[in-house]
């Protein structure tokens, strides 16, 4: 079995004594596209932030590529929710994408020509090269999302964590993002994305983690993305159930290899 890209053990996160995530075990398969789904307030964003070390857990252990976040930082790229920043900030598209290179630069060092070229290449990947000098307030929602994606691409990481990359984007952007995700998978990268639209989970993702404060199910979409699990997570009111819960066939590219060391409940593992 290859090492998981992300390994979360016994993770509990609480805000003001109120648990947001309870005793969660998750393994994210390297080289796969994994969706995190669950109802509002289920702790999806918190899980991403805990992995990134942005919130400190009450308990548990998180390893990225076998290392602590601090040591694996350069291998991780992050796409926050689009609404978390002020898009009227006086800066250009290229400038925002360049921020993806800051982590690799030391204190006081400015991005140079090399970084600029990388940023331009990333913009090209998301189809935004024509907008490099555009002020960010002049972008549509979908274009903003693609700029954030380009910023993560510039980080040139192995693991990409995305918080609702498809939230409120136009069809063209959705296609572009899917393309980028597939391209990342081809290059052996790992992508974990918080996702809302349940109907596109089987089409876009290989694996899924269903959670609602605790983990409900996790594994290859064909196995874990079942009606029963979704009903458990969403409390019976599942927004979309079509195309869900097929009988588990062998998913191409996913070779299920039960790990005797792993707890049967919850965790999943597999080698690609």
């Amino acid at each position: 079995m290859t090492e998981p890209a992300i390994e979360v053990n016994d993770l509990t996160v609480a805000y003001h004594e109120r648990p947001v995530l309870w005793d969660m075990d998750v393994r994210v398969r390297a080289g796969a596209l994994t969706a995190i789904v669950g109802p509002n307030g289920a702790g999806k964003t918190t899980l991403i932030k805990a992995i990134l070390g942005l919130v400190s857990p009450a308990a548990g252990r998180i390893r990225i590529l076998g290392r602590k976040y601090r040591e694996a930082r350069r291998e991780v790229a992050y796409v926050p929710q689009r609404g978390t920043v002020d898009w009227d900030f006086p800066t250009s598209v290229l400038d925002v994408v360049l921020m993806g290179t800051y982590g690799g630069l030391g204190w006081m060092r400015r991005p140079g020509r090399k970084e600029r070229e990388r940023a331009e290449a990333a913009l090209e990947q998301v189809g935004m090269e024509a907008f490099a000098q555009r002020q960010i307030s002049q972008l549509s929602g979908g274009q903003q999302q693609r700029v954030f994606l380009a910023r993560a691409l510039v980080q040139d990481a192995s693991v990409y964590l995305m918080d609702e990359p498809f939230q409120g984007v136009d069809a063209r952007t959705e296609r572009a993002i899917v393309e980028v995700l597939r391209h990342l998978r081809e290059r052996g990268k790992t992508v974990v994305a918080v996702h809302h639209a349940l109907q596109t989970v089987p089409e876009y993702f290989d694996d899924v983690v269903i959670l609602n404060v605790r983990k409900i199910a996790a594994g290859p979409v064909a196995e874990a993305f079942t009606e029963q699990h979704l009903r458990t997570a969403y409390g019976g009111r599942v927004p979309f159930l079509q195309g869900v819960a097929p009988s588990p066939p062998a998913t191409p590219g996913v070779q299920e290899s039960p790990d005797p060391a792993a707890d049967r409940r919850g965790t999943f593992s597999g080698g690609a």
Binding site: D86, V96, M108
Partner: peptide, 20 residues
Amino acid sequence: FWKEFKLLSFDPEFGASVGL
């Protein structure tokens, strides 16, 4: 500290994720 201040002002959470 220009680039650090800029990142802090625009997107502090992303900044923290890249080790700022």
